[in-house]
């Protein structure tokens, strides 16, 4: 059983398996490899605290979370609950205060910032709330950027980026600058950029917050199909309407993580 701690006296028990089972520890080699293959990112007893002057804010209590292949995991919770911190930890953009983070079998705690950057480049795709396309670059150049950072030759990078943009139906806007695109179009370019390096884990921070209803549906269907294709997709949101797209839901509230809502009223 995977336990998620909420203070010392509260303990949610999650489905599936305990951490050692997830990571494959104490299992035969074959079982470990299979477990590692399925679990793209594993947070084990992971917490995060921020210091502001003399004050220490606990953004995430010690938590165990797993993001698996073929799953669209919805990380849901109100603003300030710690869901973005959870996403940041899984996305290797911050180090945990305590506990361990594993991404594609690599122990994130032991990696230096440059190694973390390379881990993100090759294994993680990001989709941001405000799209975060590089303003001076065209849609095509934005999508080419991760490939160029991987030192893939320009010609090949261009071809792959074109394919990724065509996949999200943005093939006709490749030469447009981000400011020339609508919110929905920008988000689709951002998805193409997240996908183009063929990452195992796609982390989306409020990807639909700035979109109209029609664009929300398009974007979520894109993400859902990616999960079906074998990616692990995690979507952070406070929009409960997205539940219909989720294979699994993780609730975050006041820094505590659970797979069952601690208080349904909060989330509905």
């Amino acid at each position: 059983m995977l336990s998620v701690r909420k203070n010392e006296d509260v303990c949610f028990e999650l489905r599936d398996m305990n951490f050692s089972e997830i990571t494959g520890e104490n299992q035969p080699l074959k079982g470990k490899q299979e477990a590692d293959k399925k679990n793209v990112a594993v947070l084990s007893g992971t917490s995060k605290q921020y210091k502001t002057g003399d004050t220490t804010i606990t953004a995430l209590q010690p938590s165990d979370v797993v993001f698996r292949e073929n799953e669209l995991t919805l990380v849901i919770g109100p603003s300030g609950s710690g869901k973005t911190t959870l996403l940041s930890l899984a996305g290797c953009v911050i180090y945990p205060t305590s506990g361990d983070v594993w991404v594609k079998g690599q122990h994130v705690n032991t990696l230096n910032p440059d190694e973390l950057a390379r881990l993100r480049l090759y294994n993680i795709g990001f989709v941001f709330q405000n799209f975060n396309l590089i303003a001076p670059l065209t849609a095509l150049e934005n999508v080419m950027q991760p490939l160029r950072m991987m030192k893939i030759p320009v010609k090949e990078a261009r071809k792959k980026a074109q394919e990724a943009l065509e996949m999200v139906q943005m093939g006709d806007r490749m030469k447009s600058l981000p400011k020339q695109l609508s919110g929905g179009q920008q988000q689709r370019v951002a998805i193409a950029r997240a996908l183009v390096g063929n990452p195992s884990l796609i982390l989306c921070d409020e990807p639909t917050a700035a979109l109209d209803a029609k664009s929300v549906s398009i974007v979520m269907h894109e993400l859902k199909s990616l999960a079906k294709d074998g990616k692990s997709v995690a979507v952070v949101t406070h929009d409960t309407r997205l539940k219909q797209f989720a294979d699994r839901i993780i609730y975050v509230h006041n820094g505590y993580v659970s797979e069952t809502p601690p208080d349904e009223e909060i989330f509905n």
Binding site: P113, D114, R118, L121, G125, A135, Q145
Partner: peptide, 18 residues
Amino acid sequence: DRVKDYGTLKAIGATNGY
């Protein structure tokens, strides 16, 4: 002015060297 773009580049995998 471009700090958001540089931050994004770092988030998607650019090292400080890059």
